[in-house]
């Protein structure tokens, strides 16, 4: 379909982009990868009066691993993460898994991690991984920058803490230690479909093999990606044995609140949430060389 008419401006700096957003308020939308925005515009569900293109803002295109943080700039593509030289390191296994299953290989050439977080689709992959790995989003406005923890950043379906006249400029993932591994388990009807169900898991072990920290989140399980803190608490301080894993999986299944749709019924999706959390935990532990 043909989008409704709109004005297009190209920003060359962050300040310029923010100035445009300030000027037009809720009538403007940021254009980075456009992989969610443009389809919404083509169906005429989204009708921004102004598109502010940030793809030429060089300051936003970076992947920086330093000071215990991986910082991803707003115009860094999914494929940049997928192909980063350091992504094979076990500590990044959750993010690595996600970067290989977001949408499809073609979309990943244009889609951005930050854009995905800002879009906050209930079935998104990056939001779920961000919750499990305790990420933060840096938001810039006229008054300066602020860092928002992901739990607060994701407000509701397609709604985040980014206000009018503001823009997210980066996502920050804490660098896990070397006794950490993760896994992203996604069931999709075909490559490119939204998740039928998905689970993000990141687990850190103590020297004695007990769990020091756990991040467990679900996608397509409610209005937003969902962190299952009950499941996390069940694991911390314990040895990750089979019964513990199953208890965590059951907690995830109970907490999951999916909608029935063409991908499956509510009972099926809740069941999958448990299955995928269990599989994710087992794979993360296997990556750590530990046995369940």
């Amino acid at each position: 379909m043909i989008p409704a008419a709109f004005e297009y401006v190209r920003a060359h700096s962050i300040d310029e982009a923010i100035a445009h957003l300030q000027q037009h308020g809720g009538d403007a939308r940021v254009l980075a990868g456009g992989q969610s925005l443009i389809p919404a515009m083509r169906f005429r569900l989204a009708r921004p009066a102004v598109l502010v293109d940030i793809n030429s803002v060089r300051d936003l295109s970076y992947l920086r691993a330093s000071d215990g943080v991986l910082e991803i700039g707003a115009t860094s593509r999914d494929s940049d993460v997928e192909r980063a030289g350091w992504i094979g390191d076990r500590r990044w296994s959750l993010i690595h898994d996600v970067s290989r299953v977001v949408a499809d290989p073609v979309v990943r050439q244009m889609g951005t991690v930050v854009g995905s977080l800002c879009h906050n689709d209930p079935s998104g992959d990056w939001t779920t991984a961000a919750l499990a790995s305790r990420a933060e989003v840096v938001v810039r406005g006229k008054a300066g920058a602020r860092t928002v923890p992901i739990d607060e950043f994701l407000v509701d379906s397609f709604t985040t803490a980014v206000g009018e006249g503001e823009m997210a400029v980066a996502a920050r993932f804490p660098k896990p230690d070397d006794r950490t591994a993760g896994s992203y388990q996604k069931i999709e009807r075909k490559v490119g479909d939204f998740a039928t169900a998905a689970a993000a898991v990141q687990i850190s072990l103590n020297a004695d093999g007990t769990v020091r920290a756990a991040g467990i989140a679900l996608s397509a399980a409610g209005p937003c990606a969902l962190r299952v803190d009950e499941a996390e608490r069940l694991l911390v301080g314990r040895e990750p044995r089979d019964e513990t894993i199953r208890a965590a999986a059951d907690a995830a299944s109970r907490r999951s609140a999916p909608q029935a749709d063409l991908r499956g019924g509510v009972d099926y999706k809740k069941h999958l949430a448990g299955v995928l959390v269990a599989r994710g935990l087992r794979q993360a532990l296997a990556r750590l060389g530990a046995r369940a």
């Binding site: 009807r189 075909k190 490559v191 490119g192 479909d193 063409l262």
Partner: peptide, 11 residues
């Protein structure tokens, strides 16, 4: 094509 599915070369 979100709801009427065409398989890709990957599956």
């Amino acid at each position: 094509f979100t709801d009427y599915l065409l398989p890709t070369s990957l599956e």
